[in-house]
């Protein structure tokens, strides 16, 4: 399947998405996160895809993050396949942090250096802020 790029600006910004069946149990919607880094691994598996990002701080330290997206089937119905996010890419991820305080989160949107943005959230996850 050919990937289809979903520009975030094309999404209905007032889309009232909120809690996935597991969102409230696992993530804190009062703790939005924005992480810029390099993709190190993608797990294209159920029940949610996971992509791993290394973010380098100003002091050179590297923080490992993991972000959860929708189920592979949900994403493929949007035209997003496993080739869209690949190791080595630099991306900006916006989402919400895990309740347990670990460096895990939902990855609601992913923005690439050329400005393209894909909607990677689960069908019922809360959406992060819409600004780029």
């Amino acid at each position: 399947m050919k990937p289809a790029w979903f520009l975030f600006a094309a999404l209905p910004l007032a889309l009232p998405l909120a809690a996935h069946h597991s969102f409230n149990a696992e993530y804190d919607d009062t703790k939005p996160v924005t992480v810029t880094g390099t993709v190190t691994k993608v797990e294209w598996q159920n029940p949610h895809i996971w992509f791993f990002v290394d973010a380098k701080g100003t002091d050179g330290t590297v923080t490992h993050w993991a972000f959860s997206g929708g189920a592979p089937g949900q994403l493929m119905r949007r035209g997003i396949n496993k080739d869209v996010i690949q190791p080595g890419m630099t991306i900006v991820v916006r989402g919400f942090r895990a309740k347990d305080g670990s460096n895990n989160g939902t990855g609601g949107t992913v923005t690439f250096p050329d400005g393209r943005m894909v909607f990677t959230a689960g069908a019922e996850d809360k959406l992060p802020e819409t600004k780029k």
Partner: peptide
Amino acid sequence: GLFEYICEENNRCPGGKCKEP
């Protein structure tokens, strides 16, 4: 066609207890 959905395959945050990245 329908896609597979095997929840147990990679449920990294069961009950809010996530694996470390």
